[in-house]
Every structure is written in structure tokens, then in C-alpha cells.
Design a protein around this nucleic acid. Structure first.
Length: 317
DNA sequence: CAGTAACCCCGCCACG
DNA sequence: AGCGTGGCGGGGTTAC
């Protein structure tokens, strides 16, 4: 099987962070973690070197001709929502779409997709500062200002900056499975599921079962202190134990207990960062019976002891 | 650290 | 045949 080809558009006056987000997800070889390798091509929207918002200048090795050859095309940003995208970018995007490519617009990249007509009659989102402008200029788009990202199948759009990361991971998950997405998230050291909960997620409307699953996960993160077991989650999901285990791995990319342990450790890290509670107290609040049971898990997942973590956090920031 | 009890979780397979 | 479900077994992991 050939490596899936991903094209990332380098836009004029590129905001560096937004451009780097999809490259960090797709452009790094993590095949040693079981993640598929992507052939990631950076395509310049205009020839030559491009200045970035970070003050440095970058050059793209490819041009817009590669867009129609890619299976996934990402427009990470656009410099200014009032500025109309160039005709050749719009055209390249359209032919990529017509060739069957998935098109992903992050942040203001949504405006480029809109200009290409790819969002007509669909739901979409963009950076919260410009959702009103998007809705005003494109009344045929159903703008969802509350969504982190919106999945319309062949077209996916995300809200500002960091939500682009969620959208990229979502596409990996959809196309290559939760296990691959979880592995990437782990390597990038981001939470595979936003701490804020699943309520921000806009899922495909037909995905009822997955929505129920998400509800259970959100409930679990709010009751970590009650030392829930896997059977508590299973019971709430209303599935048999066997089906719950199976579905959990498909949906989340890890086993229920391992997920729970990760959530507990994440909670412990937050408390270590933001409070001066004793490790014992923190252990209790995160669902460990004592600090004794917290410590080995903390070391396994974070790599240090709770105390060392707290100290390092406060001296680094 | 060591021992034991409890729990997890995934292959296997029968069932609808 | 194909597909999702769920009981069972038990090696492996985790809790105390």
C-alpha cells in the first residue's frame, strides 16, 4: 500500500504555528509506533520564499500542482479573512476535491474552502473572531460557532489555532483508526481527549453510538475521584462487558483501565501544578486509594515522581 | 520486596 | 457466506 499523500498549503504571510500543526501530525515518521507513514508535501500557494508571522522566511518544496494528487489536502490558515484567495489556489483546491481528496480547513483556512464553494450547503466552523463574517459572506454555509471542528465527510473545518490539532487527529482517527490517533497524541504529549470534555465535539449526525460513548467518557472524567472501575463505565454505557471492551478500543484507541489511569494521572498533574495539596490528598481526589498506588502509575506515565514533577513545573514556568 | 486476591482484556466461538 | 454481539476462559496486570 502506498503511503497516503498529504498536501499542506503554505499560504502567503503564513502564521507559523498554524502551519506547523498539520506538519507535526502528518509530517513526522512515527511508524515505529504503529502509525502509518504519510507522504507529506508542503505546497506553496505562490512561488518563492514566503515570510511568516514569526519573522522568518520559509520556502515550500512543491507547488499547487500536487494538490489534486493528494488524498488529503490541508489549508492551515489564511492571512486575512477579508482578502480573497488567489484564483489558482481556489482552482487547485477544487480539482483536488473533485479528484476525491479530503479537504481540511483549519482556522481561517475555512475561508479558502468557502471561496472554493466546498462548503455550500454544509456545516462549517472557523476561528471564533470571524464566525460572524463567514456566515455573513456565505449565507449558504451553516456556521457552527461553538464547534471545535465540524466533520462533513469529505470536508472538515476547525476553529482557531489549537482546535486544528483536534481536527487533524480526528481525521487520522477516522481514516486510520483510534489507535493511530492515540499514538500520535501520545508522541506529541497532548491529551487524546480534551480535558474540557466531549461537549465541544461536533460528531457526524449519524454517529449516535459514538456519541453515547463520548457521554460516558465525559461523565467518567468528572467522577475520577470516586475510584471508578471499568465495570462502572461499562454499566453506564449499557453494553455487555465484552462489547464494551471491544468498542472502547475501537473508539478510544486504548483499553478502559489504561484510559482511566491516564485520566487520573492527568488530573493529578493538574493538581500538582495548580495547588499545594499533599500527594496523598491529590491521590485521593484522583481516584487512587493512597499515594502508594498513585506513584508507580505516575512514574510509568509521566516519567518522574509527583514531587519532582511539581518542582520541575514550578521552576520551569 | 513478596505474596495473594482481584481485576482486566482479548482470542475464541456460538448465537442470532 | 457475512456481521455484530456477548459468554467464557485464563494469562497478564494491578491493588493491597
Amino acid at each position: 500500500m502506498p503511503e497516503p499523500r498529504v498536501a499542506v498549503v503554505l499560504t502567503p504571510d503564513a502564521p507559523l504555528f498554524e502551519t506547523a500543526v498539520p506538519l507535526s501530525v502528518f509530517g513526522i515518521d512515527r511508524s515505529d509506533d504503529g502509525v502509518p507513514r504519510f507522504e507529506t508535501l508542503v505546497a506553496g500557494a505562490s512561488p518563492g520564499a514566503v515570510p511568516t508571522t514569526a519573522g522568518l522566511t520559509v520556502a515550500a518544496p512543491y507547488d499547487l500542482a500536487v494538490l489534486p494528487t493528494a488524498g488529503l489536502v490541508i489549508v492551515p490558515t489564511w492571512p486575512d479573512p477579508h482578502r480573497a484567495p488567489d484564483a489558482d489556489l481556489v482552482e487547485a483546491l477544487r480539482s483536488a476535491y473533485d479528484a476525491g481528496a479530503i479537504v481540511l480547513g483549519l482556522c481561517l483556512g475555512t475561508f479558502v474552502l468557502a471561496a472554493a464553494g466546498l462548503l455550500d450547503g454544509r456545516r462549517a466552523t472557523t476561528h471564533w473572531r470571524h464566525t460572524a463574517l463567514l456566515a455573513e459572506r456565505y449565507p449558504q454555509i451553516e456556521v457552527d460557532a461553538a464547534a471545535l471542528y465540524v466533520d462533513e465527510g469529505q470536508v472538515v473545518t476547525s476553529a482557531g489555532t489549537a482546535a486544528g490539532l483536534d481536527a487533524c487527529l480526528h481525521v487520522v482517527r477516522r481514516e486510520h483508526g483510534a489507535e493511530a490517533a492515540a499514538a500520535i497524541a501520545r508522541r506529541m504529549v497532548v491529551a487524546p481527549h480534551r480535558a474540557g470534555g466531549q461537549s465541544q465535539f461536533i460528531r457526524p449526525p449519524d454517529d449516535e453510538a459514538a456519541g453515547r460513548f463520548a457521554e460516558v467518557l465525559e461523565w467518567a472524567t468528572k467522577h475520577l475521584g470516586e475510584s471508578l472501575g471499568v465495570d462502572d463505565l461499562q454499566h453506564r454505557a449499557g453494553l455487555s462487558r465484552r462489547s464494551f471492551d471491544r468498542r472502547f478500543r475501537e473508539e478510544v484507541g486504548t483499553s478502559p483501565l489504561q484510559w482511566l489511569l491516564h485520566q487520573r494521572i492527568l488530573a493529578a498533574q493538574r493538581l500538582l501544578e495548580s495547588t499545594s495539596l499533599s500527594v496523598d490528598e491529590i491521590a485521593g481526589r484522583c481516584g487512587f486509594s493512597t499515594a502508594v498506588s498513585l506513584r508507580p502509575q505516575f512514574r510509568r506515565i509521566v516519567g518522574t515522581s509527583p514531587r519532582a514533577y511539581r518542582e520541575a513545573f514550578h521552576t520551569t514556568s
